[in-house]
Every structure is written in structure tokens, then in C-alpha cells.
């Protein structure tokens, strides 16, 4: 597989949650930087006293098991800081991948960022 580029943005920081928005594919070539950046975002949320990180998946094309497991490692790190990770607005491919992997049973998945922040 080719090397993919992962672009991140922190789109809001409204006092309730840190909303992060990675863009691209998360596969074996991007899973490590994805996990590292997610860890940084969790620490930033904890430093700011926020209880939640919302991962906006709307610009993720797909995520392989490496990326999914990166989410779990992030979840473990977040729980150490008493921060929750939730997922928002996955595309149809990501919805299928979350269902096939049963990750929709271990992460809360919301249709919109607003619902994820409020939920």
C-alpha cells in the first residue's frame, strides 16, 4: 500500500469538548502518527480540564485495524486522564468498518459533532 498523508485540524474548543478532525486514510502508513497526535490531543484536553475528545471522522476515507486499535490506545490513555473519546459523523465506509469490527460496541458513535459534544 502507498504512503498516505493524514491532515489534522482542531475545529472547536467550546469548553465542553476538544473536537479534532483528522483527514485521510488511516492505515499502516499513517496509524502511528495518528495515534501520536491523538495522544497529544487527549493531553491537551486534559490540560484544559475538558472531559471529552470528539473525533470527527467526516474526512476519514477509511481506517484499517491499525487505526481502530490506535483509537483504543487513545481511549486507554484518555481514561487515565478521566477524558472520554467519542466518534462523530463517520462516512458510510467508516460506519461499515465500525460495525464489522464491532467497534460501534466499544465507542459511542454520533451522527453529528453537535450531538457528540452534547451526548
Amino acid at each position: 500500500m502507498g504512503t498516505s498523508i493524514l491532515v489534522w485540524s482542531v475545529v472547536s474548543h467550546d469548553g465542553a469538548a476538544r473536537v479534532v478532525k483528522p483527514a485521510g486514510k488511516i492505515d499502516e502508513s499513517t496509524a502511528t502518527p495518528f495515534g501520536e497526535r491523538l495522544a497529544e490531543e487527549i493531553e491537551a484536553a486534559a490540560t484544559d480540564g475538558l472531559a471529552k475528545v470528539v473525533v470527527d471522522l467526516s474526512h476519514i476515507e477509511y481506517m484499517s485495524s491499525r487505526g481502530l486499535r490506535g483509537l483504543t490506545l487513545g481511549q486507554r490513555k484518555a481514561s487515565e486522564h478521566k477524558v472520554a473519546i467519542v466518534l462523530a459523523q463517520p462516512n458510510e465506509i467508516m460506519r461499515e468498518i465500525l460495525a464489522i469490527s464491532r467497534y460501534d460496541k466499544v465507542f459511542k458513535v454520533f451522527d453529528s459533532v453537535a450531538e457528540a459534544v452534547a451526548g
Binding site: 485495524s65 468498518i97 460496541k105
Partner: peptide
């Protein structure tokens, strides 16, 4: 499933389809 393999059944020595 991947979710089982990293949660309840982690360290049970098996893997997942994905």
C-alpha cells in the same frame, strides 16, 4: 471480532478477521 480481541478477550491468545 477486533473489538472483543482488544477488550474482554484481550490476552486470550487469538486474533480477528480484520
Amino acid at each position: 471480532s477486533l473489538a472483543d480481541s482488544i477488550s474482554m478477550k484481550e490476552d486470550w491468545g487469538h486474533s480477528s478477521n480484520v
